[in-house]
Design a protein around this nucleic acid. Structure first.
Length: 878
RNA sequence: GGAGGCAUAGCUCAGCUGGUUAGAGUACUUGCUUGACAUGCAAGGGGUCAUUGGUUCGAUUCCAAUUGUCUCCACCA
C-alpha cells in the first residue's frame, strides 16, 4: 500500500525529512557518469560570519537547479561547498564581540589570543550559513566542504605566493594605498567606493621666498595635507606662472621651503592653476613626486591622526583641518572657502573616509597576469552569460593596476616572508624560516601582514580539489563547468580566479560565467541592513516552504538582470506548489493502490486522442525545458513548466480524464491512469531541479521504480510519443471551446439553449477523434464537423483557417455595441481635450523640447482620426 | 568624464531569429462552495509596446537621436 498525501500542502512537514534522507543515502556525492561526461561547480564561498540572505538564496538556487538537472541527466556531478574566512568582515565582528563582552581591544589580548578567539567563534558558529544552505535544498557534496583557511588551502596560498614572488610577479613597494583609518589597513581599489559629498575648496596663499608680499594661491579640498607638501606644480605652458618655475615657496604654518615645478598633469583651467603636491597622500601627486624626485612626507598615522611633528601632532585629521584653517586665516593666508561637491572614497566595509597614504605594501604585478586572462575572454574560451558582462570585465582588466595584497589584519593567511633581525635580509618561502639563509642567524620574524581575502578565494576552483597535489578530483572535475555569481563580484573574484587558474593550472577555471542580478525589495531598492528592508529567506522558508522560495527566485530570473522580490511573487509560487499538490492528489485518489511499481504507458493503439495530445505536448515541454536550461534561461524554462502544469495538465487534461475514470474498472480508465501517472511523473522529474522537495514527496507516493526522484533520469524528447494530428485537433477544439464560452456570455445566451458549432474544414477526419471531448467539455454546445456549411441556426462557425466567428445577425446585441462605441468616443474626446490643454499651456510649450511638442501634436491628430472613425461606426449602426 | 542596462496592462515582468488578434502573474469586474485544488474554476475590462526619425513590403522587435531612469568604472587638486 502506498502512502497517501495529506489534504493540505504543508512543506514544513516534509522538507527536513526529505533532506535528511538524501544526505543519509549519500545522493549528493558524485556517481559514476552515465553519459561519459562530468559536471562540476564550486560554490561562491559565503563569508563564514554570514547569514543567508536573498542574494545567497538566489545564487544557490540557480546552482542547485543546474546541478540537479545535470545529475539527473547522467553526468557525474560534483558541487563543492565551503566558506570564506573573510578577513576584514570577520575580524571586525570578533573585535566587536570582544569590545561588547569584555571591553577589550584586540591589542589588549595580543595576536595569538585573538586568533584563538576567532577560531573558537568559527568552530562554534561557522556552520550556521552551511545549515541555512541545507534548508534551501542545496545538493552540495558536504563531505567535501572547504574553508579558505583549511590546512590544504593555506598550503596552496603559500605555494602561489612564493611562486609568484619567484617569478617576480609579487613585490614589496612604497605605493599610495587606500588606507582605512577605522579598519587600520590598506584596501584594494575594489574595496573602496566613491560617494559624492559636500566639501570645500580652500584657497591658500603660499608666500614666495625672497619676494615679500608676493604669493601664489593654491586651492585644496584637504588643507591638512599641506604638512606633507613638497612642491607646488603649474602647467609648463601656463604663462601666468612661467616666471615662477624653479623658485622656492615658503610652506605656510610649517616654514619649509618647497620648489615650484612644471608638470603636464596640471590643468591650467582648474582651480587657480597651481597645485600643491603631497606625494605621500595623493595618488596623482605620488606620480608627480616620482617625476620630479620629490620627498614623500607621511603626515598621518594609521588611525588618521597627524603624525608630523609640530603643533598639530596627535590631532585627528578633521580637527587638524579645522585648526589649521583657523591658523591660516589668522595669518592672513586664507583667501576664501568655496563650497563644492566632490567624490570621496569610503571604505566599503565600514564607510569611513579613506585616506590615500604612501606605505610599504605587497603587490601583485598585474600586467603579465592580465594578458592571458584578457585573451581567453576575447577568444570566447570563457563566455559570460549574458555577454555584455564580458565588456565590463575586459574594460576592467585592460586598465588594471597592480593588486595590493597585503592587509594590516591578524585574521588571514600571514604573508610567508621572513626577516632576519641581524642582517636584515628577507626570505620568502613556503616553509617557516627559522634560520637566516644569508647569515645563519636564528633571529627571524615573519611579516606581520596577512593576505587579501580574495587571494585565497582566487584559488578556490583548484585549491578545493586538493591542489597543489595532483588529485583525482582535479583530473576529473577541473576545469569546473560553470561559475554562477552576481555581477557585483566580477572584478573582486571572477577576474582573479581566471588569471590564477591560467597561471597555476594552465587552464581556465570554467568555460561559462553565468551572471545573475541582485534581489531587490518590492520597491526596487537594494536590500540593506541600514534600510531595514531585507527579507530573511529563512522566514520565507518557514512560512511558504523552500520550494516556493526557490520558485519565486528562479522564475523571476533572467541572466544578468536584477529582480524584485514581493509577497505577491512568493504567494503565487506557493499557490503553484499547492496546485501541483492537489493535482497529484487527484491522480492518486483515482488509483486502486495496487498498481505495480512498474506501471507503464499502454500500447499506442489504446491511447485516446487526448492522451496522444498530452503526450505530444509533454514531449515538447521536455525539449523546451532542456533547451532553455542549456542556455541558462532558468526563468523561461520554469515558466514553460508552470504553464504546462497549470493550463494544460490541470485545466484540460485532468478534466478530460474525469469521464473515463468514472468507471474505475474499465480498460479506458486504466489507460487514463497510466497516462496520468506517466505525465505526472514526467512533470515531477522536469520540475525537480527547481522544486526538489515537493516533487520528491509526491513521487514517493506514486508507483515508481527508482528509489528517489533525485537520482532518476531526466525526461527527454521521445519521438515515438509525438502525435502531431491529435495535438493540432485538440488545440483547435480547446480554442473553440474557450471562444464559445466567451461568446455565449457576451451575448447572454441562456444556458438552456444549445449552441451548434460548425467546424468547417477540408479534413474532417482529422477532427473526428476530438468531437466527443468537445461535447463533454462544452456541455452547452454541439460540434458539427463538416466540409460545407449550410445551416441557419448556428451561432458560431469555426473555420479551418482560424477560430473566427460569424455571429448570426439576430444574435448581435446592437444596443451593447452602440454603448461600447459611445464609451470609446467619450474617452477619445477627453484625451483630445487633455492634449489641447497641454499644448495651449504656454509654460509647456516654452519649456518642452520641440520633439515633445511635436509628439503631442502627432498624438492629437491621431486621436482626431480615431474620433472620426468612431462617429462613422456609430452612424452605421443607426 | 567613460561604459552599460532599462522604458510593454494599475503594479511586477515575459515576448529568444522583424511577420497571426502583443502574453503571464497580481490587482479589478461578473458568475460559480459541480467530489483534486476558493492557495480554486469560468468569463470579462484594461496596452498608440517612452517620444521622434531611419532601414524594410512590414518594426514592440533592428539602427540613430531625444527624454526619463538605474548601475558600474574613473576622477581634478
Amino acid at each position: 500500500m502506498r502512502r497517501e498525501l495529506p489534504k493540505v500542502y504543508t512543506p514544513s512537514e516534509f522538507e527536513d525529512r526529505i533532506y535528511a534522507n538524501w544526505c543519509e543515502k549519500n545522493y549528493f556525492a558524485p556517481k559514476e557518469s552515465k553519459n561519459g561526461k562530468n559536471f562540476s561547480v564550486v560554490i561562491p564561498p559565503p563569508n563564514v560570519t554570514g547569514q543567508l540572505h536573498m542574494g545567497h538564496a538566489l545564487n544557490n538556487t540557480l546552482q542547485d537547479i543546474l546541478v540537479r538537472a545535470k545529475r539527473m541527466q547522467g553526468y557525474s556531478t560534483l558541487w563543492i561547498p565551503g566558506t570564506d574566512h573573510a578577513g576584514i568582515a570577520t575580524q571586525i565582528k570578533i573585535e566587536e564581540n570582544l569590545r561588547v563582552e569584555k571591553g577589550l581591544s584586540r591589542h589588549d589580548i595580543g595576536r595569538e589570543e585573538f586568533l584563538k578567539l576567532v577560531w573558537d567563534w568559527k568552530n562554534a558558529y561557522g556552520n550556521r550559513i552551511i545549515n541555512q544552505l541545507k534548508k534551501l535544498g542545496s545538493s552540495c557534496d558536504w563531505s567535501r566542504e572547504r574553508f579558505t583557511m583549511d590546512e590544504n588551502l593555506s598550503r596552496a596560498v603559500k605555494k602561489v605566493f612564493v611562486s609568484l614572488y619567484d617569478k617576480g610577479l609579487i613585490y614589496k613597494g612604497l605605493r599610495i594605498t587606500n588606507w582605512c583609518p577605522r579598519c587600520n589597513t590598506a584596501l584594494s581599489d575594489a574595496e573602496i567606493e566613491h560617494k559624492d559629498s559636500e566639501g570645500a575648496f580652500y584657497h591658500v596663499r603660499y608666500p614666495i621666498k625672497d619676494q615679500p608680499g608676493e604669493y601664489v594661491i593654491v586651492a585644496t579640498t584637504r588643507p591638512e595635507t599641506l604638512l606633507g607638501d613638497t612642491a607646488v606644480a603649474v602647467h609648463p605652458e601656463d604663462e601666468r606662472y612661467a616666471s615662477l618655475v624653479g623658485k622656492m615657496l615658503i610652506l605656510p604654518l610649517v616654514g619649509r621651503e618647497i620648489p615650484v615645478v612644471a608638470d603636464e598633469a596640471v590643468e591650467p583651467e582648474f582651480g587657480t592653476g597651481c597645485v600643491k603636491i603631497t606625494p605621500a597622500h595623493d595618488p596623482n601627486d605620488f606620480e608627480t613626486g616620482i617625476r620630479h624626485n620629490l620627498e614623500n612626507i607621511i603626515i598621518l598615522d594609521g588611525n588618521g591622526c597627524i603624525s608630523a611633528e609640530g603643533p598639530y601632532f596627535g590631532m585627528d585629521r578633521y580637527d587638524a583641518r579645522k585648526k589649521m584653517v583657523e591658523d591660516l586665516d589668522a595669518q592672513g593666508l586664507l583667501v576664501k572657502i568655496e563650497p563644492c561637491t566632490h567624490a570621496v572614497a569610503h571604505c566599503y566595509r565600514c564607510g569611513t573616509v579613506i585616506e590615500p597614504m604612501a606605505s610599504k605594501q605587497w603587490f601583485v604585478r598585474m600586467k603579465p597576469l592580465a594578458e592571458p586572462a584578457i585573451r581567453v575572454v576575447k577568444e570566447s574560451e570563457i563566455r559570460y552569460i549574458p555577454d555584455r558582462f564580458s565588456k565590463i570585465y575586459l574594460n576592467w582588466m585592460e586598465n588594471i593596476r597592480d593588486w595590493c595584497v597585503s592587509r594590516q589584519l591578524w585574521w588571514g593567511h600571514r604573508i610567508p616572508a621572513y626577516y632576519c633581525e641581524d642582517c636584515g635580509e628577507m626570505t620568502v618561502a613556503e616553509q617557516d624560516v627559522t634560520v637566516c639563509p644569508k647569515c645563519g642567524s636564528t633571529h627571524m620574524h615573519q611579516d606581520e601582514d596577512v593576505l587579501d581575502t580574495w587571494f585565497s578565494s582566487a584559488l578556490w576552483p583548484f585549491s578545493t580539489m586538493g591542489w597543489p597535489d595532483k588529485t583525482e578530483e582535479l583530473e576529473k572535475y577541473y576545469p569546473t563547468s560553470v561559475l554562477v555569481t552576481a555581477y557585483d563580484i566580477i572584478t573582486f573574484w571572477v577576474s582573479k580566479m581566471i588569471f590564477m587558474g591560467i597561471e597555476f593550472m594552465d587552464e581556465i577555471p570554467f568555460p561559462d560565467v553565468f551572471i545573475h542580478g541582485l534581489v531587490r525589495d518590492a520597491q526596487g531598492r537594494k536590500m540593506s541592513k541600514s534600510l531595514g528592508n531585507g527579507i530573511d529567506p529563512l522566514q520565507i522558508i518557514d512560512k511558504y516552504g523552500a520550494d516556493a522560495l526557490r520558485f519565486a527566485l528562479a522564475s523571476g530570473n533572467s541572466p544578468g538582470n536584477d529582480m524584485r522580490f514581493s509577497d505577491e511573487k512568493i504567494e503565487s509560487a506557493r499557490n503553484f506548489a499547492n496546485k501541483l499538490w492537489n493535482a497529484s492528489r487527484f491522480v492518486l485518489m483515482n488509483l486502486s493502490g495496487n498498481e505495480p511499481d512498474d506501471y507503464p504507458l499502454p500500447s499506442t493503439d489504446k491511447l485516446a486522442a487526448e492522451d496522444k495530445w498530452i503526450l505530444s505536448r509533454f514531449n515538447e515541454l521536455a525539449a523546451a525545458v532542456n533547451e532553455n536550461l542549456d542556455k541558462y534561461e532558468v526563468g523561461i524554462a520554469l515558466s514553460t513548466l508552470y504553464d504546462f502544469i497549470w493550463d494544460i495538465f490541470c485545466d484540460w487534461y485532468i478534466e478530460l480524464c474525469k469521464s473515463r475514470l468514472s468507471n474505475p474498472e474499465s480498460e479506458e480508465a486504466d489507460t487514463a491512469r497510466r497516462v496520468l501517472i506517466f505525465v505526472l511523473t514526467g512533470i515531477l522529474k522536469l520540475l525537480h531541479p527547481y522544486m526538489p522537495f515537493i516533487t520528491e514527496e509526491i513521487y514517493s507516493c506514486l508507483p515508481h521504480t527508482e528509489e528517489s526522484i533525485m537520482i532518476s533520469a531526466f525526461p527527454t524528447f521521445d519521438a515515438s510519443l509525438v502525435f502531431p494530428r491529435e495535438e493540432e485537433a485538440m488545440d483547435r477544439v480547446i480554442a473553440m471551446i474557450r471562444a464559445i464560452r466567451g461568446r455565449r456570455s457576451e451575448m447572454n445566451v441562456p444556458p438552456s439553449r444549445k449552441t451548434k458549432v460548425y467546424l468547417v474544414t477540408k479534413y474532417p477526419e482529422d477532427f473526428a477523434p476530438a468531437a466527443p471531448f468537445f461535447t463533454k467539455l462544452a456541455s452547452t454546445a454541439e460540434l458539427i464537423i463538416t466540409d460545407a456549411y449550410e445551416s441557419d441556426d448556428a451561432v458560431n462557425i469555426i473555420t479551418d483557417a482560424a477560430t473566427a466567428f460569424i455571429p448570426l445577425s439576430d444574435m448581435v446585441d446592437l444596443d451593447k455595441e452602440r454603448a461600447r462605441l459611445k464609451a470609446e468616443l467619450a474617452k477619445t474626446e477627453s484625451e483630445i481635450e487633455r492634449i489641447e490643454k497641454k499644448l495651449a499651456n504656454e509654460g509647456f510649450v516654452a519649456k518642452a523640447p520641440a520633439a515633445v511638442v511635436d509628439g503631442e501634436r502627432a498624438k492629437l491628430s491621431k486621436y482626431i482620426d480615431t474620433k472620426d472613425a468612431l462617429c462613422e461606426a456609430i452612424a452605421k449602426l443607426g
